[in-house]
Design a protein around this nucleic acid. Structure first.
Lengths: 371, 371
DNA sequence: CTGAAAGCGCTTACAG
DNA sequence: CTGAAAGCGCTTACAG
């Protein structure tokens, strides 16, 4: 490192350096910054001038250690930062958290997993508490988390956990979506589901996915059907994966008349595939999403989807965390509502004749977006 | 606060508490966590067990203070968190920063202004350095920033600053956009510009806006025209503001045949207004944006726009910051390229006859999106 | 109005 | 393999 870090010269100046240079004690330096009225004006100004000249700033770290608080809220994320910031769901969620931070004067620390583990990242985060997103692993982890004395609020977690948390009624929302489709007369429904966590095989589905799948089963049961009656694909949550899967379905022998996507992003991909294929939505195929991201109202046709107020979820979680930090203990589990928003992407299935015709036409490949 | 914080019992346990409970020194406790091979297996396991039982975790703050680093990158933002996270430009930018954080194992601290001031927020952020976004105020602030010993990289700043920074060639990009429009034959061009900072009146335009405006002037000059020949509106960067302004223009006596938006978000609003009004794009009116946000490729018609690689900007800024933190001093100013991406929203203006016709028709009001 | 001292919680040479 | 001691940089009673 160039310039070394010898005794009095290089390196960040400390309160001691300023005190020495100005001819006062470190106490005085501290007062100049924190309790101006403890000092004579002349003294304070002299100190501040010297501090300015030396480029001195009280170390935030030392201050925080002393104060016992950071005025930062942490968000423990289930994926890398780049992936999170590519996902509009998280952008909306973080916006809700951000509103609370803005109002309360907190900063926001985004903490991705360390060595694949969300929990390992904790010791590297200087925050007053964590909003923990989508921790879908063993309950043991949650319990461990709760025991460490840092306040936490769980979001999109496991329903059976006892830690304070915020979730939405995924199950009810999905059930309503299925009802809507069944009510319109659809019988060939395909479900665009998303990848469960890595250990789903061992532990079964968890969190929101488990609840959405339960809602799907509920809705089918009401119509006297089962999961065996629907085609279901599990793909990563991305536009292209939604698109690709729908293309495959539409090229198959018996394409669906309705597509239920368990995430709007997947639904956007579906819409794109159908448009490229020249399939009329909702005339030939209906599409339903989940989340009601901002874009859902702007697609053509506008997307019918299950609305959850993601921003409110973030706001609620951050609010609960702040309450916990302040010791206004209220370790509640909140369940925010969902509701089906019917827009323009759903309609009754086409009559059988027209359907066969369309299927034949759809053997070809649509053009891709860019030249 | 419930439960008080008496001597040995309540409150977060420290290494001392664990040492006492386990019957070892604090050194041993520290070794158990940081240098496992310094301890006999039995000792280490005993200590870890006690720590687990007490819910002890080494304090991140104390560790950071000791280590002299936080392994966190700060982003100093010009607006509140909620506003930032509503702006896709920042989402893309932060994604670039996030990629570097992911790769290097850093966390990301989002720091909004404190009491209206970006600089005031600095002492409350425990980070190893800052990416400073859109600091458009007095150069004095930048100089002050640079003097404090924290590494910084300026983004979207003032061109004349001497601090290390990353910017894009806004001027050239805008010039090309104007050229494109003029080349197509447009003479009635309206410019959707955005709000300058609060003190623009005193200090003149700064940063990217100044450069884009300069590029606009360049382009017009090439065609033998001046700023006086274009209609220009300054509005906040939001869809609705873009929409509203374009509606007003289209209802006027001589609506433009081309709209140049200095930000894609404004262009999206413009496109919405025109669709609602039943105005054909690009048949009747051409639209050009700036930024090339992801959505620009997905609008109908797809947006012609000046591309800047915002994600790369974030990546470059974070990379430069990291280099500065590591003392690989390279206080360079980088200028990333821009380039016009011609898509489907631009075409020659309609012949005069058709234009008058359209203008008459556009007196009415289009329907709004939601019922 | 100002200074010496303790302590926030940790880590790491250093000596045993 | 383990302990006593110093120090990261700050703030705040406490005494003058």
């Amino acid at each position: 490192m160039p310039g070394g870090r010898t005794g009095g010269g290089r390196g960040k100046p400390t309160a001691g350096d300023v005190a020495a240079a100005a001819g006062y004690s470190r106490t005085a330096v501290s007062f100049a910054f924190n309790s101006p009225d403890q000092l004579s004006r002349a003294t304070r100004e002299r100190i501040l001038a010297v501090a300015e000249e030396l480029g001195y700033r009280p170390s935030p770290l030392a201050r925080m250690l002393r104060a016992g608080q950071t005025r930062a809220l942490g968000v423990l994320l289930p994926q890398g930062l780049a992936a999170i910031l590519r996902n509009p769901y998280y952008t909306e969620f973080l916006r809700g958290v951000g509103e609370v931070c803005d109002r309360e004067g907190y900063t926001l620390l985004l903490t991705p997993p360390l060595r694949e583990s969300m929990l390992e990242a904790i010791p590297y985060a200087a925050v007053d508490g964590f909003v923990v997103c989508g921790l879908e692993t063993d309950r043991g982890e949650v319990a461990e988390l709760a025991r460490h004395q840092t306040p936490v609020v769980l979001v999109d977690g496991d329903p059976q956990s006892d830690a304070p948390g915020v979730d939405v009624d995924d199950r009810r929302g999905t059930r309503e979506a299925v009802r809507h489709l069944v009510g319109l007369g659809h019988r060939r429904i395909a479900v665009l589901s998303f990848d469960p966590g890595p250990d789903a095989a061992v532990r079964g589905y968890r969190g929101p996915l488990a609840r959405r799948l339960a809602g799907l089963a509920d809705g089918l049961a009401e119509a006297g059907r089962t999961m065996a009656d629907v085609e279901l694909a599990e793909v990563p949550i991305s536009r292209v994966d939604g698109e690709r899967t729908v293309r495959r379905w539409m090229a198959g022998p018996e394409p669906p008349t309705a597509i239920l996507a368990l995430s709007d992003i997947l639904a956007f991909g579906a819409l794109e595939a159908l448009r490229d294929l020249g399939v009329d939505v909702p005339g030939e195929v209906s599409v339903v999403g989940f989340d009601d991201l901002a874009e859902a109202a702007r697609t053509r046709p506008a997307l019918t989807t299950v609305r959850q107020d993601t921003e409110a979820k973030g706001r609620t979680a951050a609010g609960a965390l702040l309450a916990a930090i302040r010791g206004e203990q209220q370790p509640v589990r909140r369940l925010l509502p969902t509701r089906l928003v019917v827009r323009a992407s759903t309609a009754p299935p086409p009559p059988p004749g027209r359907r066969a015709e369309a299927a034949a036409r759809n053997r070809g490949d649509g053009p891709s977006d860019e030249p």
